[in-house]
């Protein structure tokens, strides 16, 4: 595996091996060892053409725990915000000797453009491209679900997951639909019809417009961030109505299965898609998702960078 651009780049076996590697790495980082020499001498560039402090910090922590050199290249203060093309940026990174580029970009497909072009030779990790995919988030979500509900299984078979909210604009949802269903989970998308993409008839999911009917049957409720500006684009009447039908509040949480968990990729709009009591409840694994993010991203960097070019694919 040279790049991680989309969950569709992974086989089930590869996805599980990333989760297993993350499990071992989380033991390492839980214990006395804070720093591993594994990627010593490797240079990883965090190319963040779109603001995302948490994802950048997570990748940075992951890279540093593996002793890689990290260069942060953020939109603000970088030439990307001054109209420099992705191509010129990539060629600059190539000249700096980047072994891997972790890219966050507002354009869907930007990571793939970087990987497919001849502009640079390093590995590309998609840290969120437009409204396309966010594979490392899906992997950490799957990791978190498996840890809580996997009962020792390597996959997620038999687990019911509801993904609730703005599916149309969500890269987290796209990656999770692919990954969770590949791992055997049953995924239900819950959203107002305006926020479901046209053309998802062949997605391996069930569609519902009614959160209340879904809530009692699922093991995981994954809430998505709803951006306020969607209101002006007529996707829903106002925040109050959205919240009434698609928000996760204490009443709805009370009707969840025992043992069911609440997830959110962050940042949350407390009071809009999720109430404060839910976010801070015992069912919420939201802060744990953040912690798991580091282990999963270490595993991704390990799988992409620790092996040499020789014999890749030989195993």
């Amino acid at each position: 595996m040279r790049h991680l651009l989309s969950i569709s780049d992974l086989t089930k076996v590869e996805a599980i091996s990333i989760l297993d590697t993350a499990t071992e790495l989380s033991r390492v980082s839980d214990g006395a060892v804070k720093k591993l020499p594994t990627l010593r001498g490797r240079t990883i560039v965090n190319l963040f053409a779109e603001d995302s402090t948490r994802t950048r910090i997570s990748f940075e922590a992951a890279a540093k725990r593996l002793s890689a050199d990290v260069i942060n290249f953020s939109a603000k203060g970088s030439s990307l915000s001054k109209g420099e093309s992705l191509k010129d940026t990539a060629m600059t990174l190539q000249a700096m000797g980047a072994d891997a580029v972790v890219i966050r970009h507002s354009a869907s497909g930007a990571a793939q453009r970087l990987a497919d072009s001849q502009w640079m030779s390093g590995s590309v990790v998609n840290a969120g491209d437009g409204t396309h995919e966010h594979p490392s988030q899906a992997l950490l979500d799957a990791f978190t679900i498996r840890k809580h509900l996997g009962m020792g299984r390597s996959d997620l078979s038999g687990i019911n997951v509801a993904i609730v909210g703005d599916i149309l604009h969500s890269r987290v949802a796209r990656s999770n639909v692919l990954l969770l269903s590949m791992l055997g989970a049953k995924v239900t998308l819950v959203a107002p019809p305006t926020l479901l993409p046209v053309g998802i008839g062949n997605w391996p999911v069930t569609i519902s417009y009614d959160l209340d009917s879904v809530i009692p049957h699922v093991d995981v409720v994954m809430m998505l961030r709803v951006q306020q500006e969607r209101m002006s684009d007529l996707f829903f009447p106002n925040a109050r109505e959205y919240s009434r039908y698609f928000g996760l509040n204490a009443d709805r949480m009370a009707r969840m299965k025992s043992g069911a968990i609440v997830m959110h990729p962050g940042p949350m709009n407390r009071g809009l898609e999720i109430s404060a009591e839910v976010a801070d409840s015992a069912r919420s694994v939201i802060t744990e998702q953040v912690a798991n993010g580091v282990s999963v991203r270490m595993a991704i960097l390990y799988v992409l960078l620790a092996g040499g070019a020789l014999e890749v694919g030989g195993n």
């Binding site: 869907s108 497909g109 491209d129 437009g130 409204t131 396309h132 995919e133 890269r171 796209r174 993409p197 046209v198 053309g199 998802i200 008839g201 062949n202 997605w203």
Partner: peptide, 18 residues
């Protein structure tokens, strides 16, 4: 809008053109 609205635009996360 970026491309035909349908199965492919849904998957690629590119804004649909109905």
């Amino acid at each position: 809008s970026q491309m035909n609205e349908g199965e492919v635009s849904a998957r690629l996360g590119l804004k649909g053109w109905p």
